[in-house]
Design a protein around this nucleic acid. Structure first.
Lengths: 138, 138
DNA sequence: GTTGAAAGACACCATCC
DNA sequence: GGATGGTGTCTTTCAAC
């Protein structure tokens, strides 16, 4: 499906997906059209889901980055999904997980007030634990 | 720092950061150079940290997406960081958090064996809890 | 998959409002 | 801070190998 050359291409794109095809071609020792074709294939086959960016959340006014573990009773599943949908802009990722809590939310809220509004609604249908993100280290 | 127009530009880039500046210009009703200048500013000021991509982890052979909460005694901090560094390719994000555990690792390992190797080393210096990611829903 | 060439689109720069 | 026009460059597409 994806070979070693593809992995190298993905690695380059992961570091900077606006890199020029020519530069990737140099890295992987292929011609530019060959690299472009490989990228097109990976886009079509769904290996590459999306080109996106990483922001400094603080600088765009999102002062409350958090993780929330959610323990949900399945009867509330519909309400829960509509709540997630309502706060879609603040919720960056939403995973179903194993463990004592069955969902994990990765989000970034503008302020305490917005986060508070979310948790008040969440508390009505689920138990949850909030973890504040103090910093990203790596 | 960032105004409403910038937010719209970031939103467009977030959906697809390989979008052409011309197309963003249409969306925000500005000229292409004006948009390019705003983007350059946000790159320089660190608002935009990185252009990257989202992969289908399964399709690139990363069959074990996980979150790991780590409770670390600070005396082991150096060892811990060098372990994180050793497994840098499998660790996608590494956050310092509040709560009973002080770090949260977001990672994707190729298989159980690789994950096992990591946890054996981790167990020597910290307590941890692993959560398997079953799916991403949103 | 490579090379080479051509067309078109795009980004960048300087200038001006 | 934004618009316009010119220039250079990249990408894409096609050909043939």
């Amino acid at each position: 499906m994806v070979d070693d050359t593809d992995i190298k291409i993905l690695y380059a794109l992961n570091k900077n997906c606006r890199i020029k095809v020519n530069q990737i071609a140099e890295i992987v020792h292929l011609s530019a059209p060959a690299v472009a074709a490989r990228i097109a294939n990976m886009e079509d086959s769904g290996v590459i889901k999306k080109y996106t960016l990483e922001l400094d959340l603080e600088k765009v006014g999102l002062h409350r980055p958090i993780f929330i573990q959610v323990s949900l009773h399945e009867d509330n599943h519909k309400k829960y999904l509509s709540l997630i949908n309502e706060y879609r802009l603040s919720i960056r990722h939403h995973y179903r997980t194993t463990g004592d809590m069955n969902y994990l939310i990765e989000g970034a809220f503008h302020d305490n007030e917005e986060l508070n509004g979310f948790t008040i609604k969440l508390a009505k249908i689920a138990n949850y634990r909030i973890y504040d993100v103090l910093s990203e280290e790596i």
